[in-house]
Every structure is written in C-alpha cells, then in structure tokens.
Amino acid sequence: MRISADRDRCIGAGMCVLTAADLFDQDEEEGLVRVLEEAPAADREQDAHRAARLCPSGALAVTDDA
C-alpha cells in the first residue's frame, strides 16, 4: 500500500490528521497535508482508505503495491 497526497488540492481541513494522526500531519506554515508514512504497515490500510474517503478535496490517494 502506498499513500500519496496532492498538496495543490489540499484545503487544510484536517480530516486526514483527525482520522489517522500516525499517517498524516499538517505543516506549520500553510496547514497543508504531509504524509508521515508513505508505505504504512498493512494493518493501517483501513484507516488510510478511510482518510482518503473523508478528505473533502480529494487530495489523497491510496494505491496497492501490486
């Protein structure tokens, strides 16, 4: 699983951080998303998908390794 974030689309709503604080953060200056774990452990998959679904601006993508 790989997580990627498009910072041009991010609007800093923070839903990702709220959902999975170990995978995402917001930078100090602009409040835009930073991915903390680009290739998280498999047991974080559910939360990663959930964060992507909840992101209001469609800035997050979670893809399978395959």
């Binding site: 800093g12 917001q26 100090e28 602009e30 409040g31």
Partner: peptide, 15 residues
Amino acid sequence: HTRYRRLLTGRFTVR
C-alpha cells in the same frame, strides 16, 4: 478561493 483559504489554513490546523 484558494488564495484566501491558503492564508488561513495554517492557523486552523488540528494541532
């Protein structure tokens, strides 16, 4: 919209 919002998001982060 993006221009204004960007000026503010950093002030209203979760942290």
